[in-house]
Design a protein around this nucleic acid. Structure first.
Lengths: 218, 218
DNA sequence: CGTGGGCTTGATAGTCCTCAAGTCGGGTGG
DNA sequence: CCACCCGACTTGAGGACTATCAAGCCCACG
């Protein structure tokens, strides 16, 4: 993707508001919010989710540093999901009118936004496939591999020591499983020598195997 | 959404190619394709899906008349899924460069495309939630209700006689179930007086109940 | 040191899958 | 017009996978 020109950046600058920090597990945007929020996650992880019924929570995507929060909502004008911080995070806040402004004045920026939304959609589609067609081992492998790969795009990541701040319950809520079963499945992956989790780090012992289980053709 | 101006339509006109008809269950775009296709579905239904492993097929979305095929692929430049006709269809074909052209010359059109992709993404997210958190009855209710509602947006649809060209296997592949279990579940919905399927028509006997089961707050 | 949340583990049950056989209906050719 | 045929639908029995519930453990934290 081409980088943006000075005029594109000026559009962004004009709409930048302030920067805030949040503790883990705080609501960033949600169904209770007034108006639409538009943010960039400058540090830390977050996740997008939907409340299902009274007790069910479906995590739809994880958000990594550098990614945008609230783009879909700003485009559609309605809030179909909520976003929470997973770790401590730092957010840059923008005026949601930035979107409309970009489409009017900065085609390169608008195209970026559109591609960003498409990429999110592609991730959603991949998650649907994993949940719809795969068993617990494959689902976990899929999520672990995806998150490893997404982190690898921005910087070099040691597969044996990969940041992985998700708790069992996050994995469960993202993959349509229960915390208990996620745990059992992680044990199996560990005893099979594929991956292990220590604290908030993921250690990938057999990357080819993981990617194969994840459904990314070996 | 505001309607497009004459200059927007001119951009579309210039990129319009030809119109084609296809029989049911034909590949429209797929992993085997050369280049990216961009189409509008003028008549009939289609579905977007991903091949998972050797035998698994996950349907990610259904496409109704008036909807666009290949937008995500044209934006990202890669094909993450395939599209097939569900019924007989009629397609208008466009030059994929229409996308880039729109972003350069027609902000209103570009915004439309972006919103379209966002809406698709929102549907994907909703499907994730249904598959991840709901049992078979709720998943079926969700899909039936969604498709009824989408059709209702364009024209008046009789709930007792709603077009529904999906076979059991399509329902199964979309919802992460098997054809056999879809069938049993449909029987239960029928004996509970919620909906019934006759040929290619869906008859909704209890719309409030269906929407409640589907997770759309009663 | 007490406390609480997350993790771990076990027993049990339910949902859904697998496999397979039988039925139905629509299209085709004689 | 009827017999045939194939694909889709239907139904049943048994089994696999995962949920549910509950208890104990461990560690971080106050």
């Amino acid at each position: 993707m081409r980088s943006l020109g000075p005029s594109d950046l000026a559009v962004v600058e004009a709409m930048t508001r302030r920067e805030v920090s949040l503790l883990p597990n705080r609501q960033i945007v949600g169904e209770g919010e007034i108006g639409l929020g538009l943010y960039m996650l400058t540090e830390g992880w977050a996740f997008r989710y939907r409340q299902v019924g009274e007790r069910g929570r479906q995590i739809v995507d994880f958000l990594l540093p550098g990614e945008i929060i609230g783009l879909q909502a700003s485009l559609l004008g309605v809030l179909e999901h909520s976003v929470r911080s997973l770790t401590s995070v730092r957010l840059k806040s923008y005026d949601p009118r930035l979107i409309a402004e970009a489409f009017e004045k900065s085609p390169a920026l608008a195209l970026r936004f559109a591609r960003y939304v498409s990429a999110e959609a592609a991730r959603s589609d991949a998650l649907i496939s994993a949940i719809g067609c795969c068993d617990a081992v494959q689902r976990l492998a899929f999520l672990m591999f995806s998150l490893y790969q997404r982190q690898s795009r921005n910087r070099v990541v040691d597969p044996r020591n990969c940041p992985f701040p998700l708790r069992r319950q996050h994995l469960a809520d993202a993959l349509g499983l229960t915390g208990a079963h996620v745990n059992r499945t992680i044990n199996r992956l560990k005893s099979d020598g594929v991956v292990s989790i220590n604290g908030r780090q993921l250690a990938i012992h057999d990357l080819p195997r993981l990617s194969e289980l994840a459904g990314f053709a070996a």
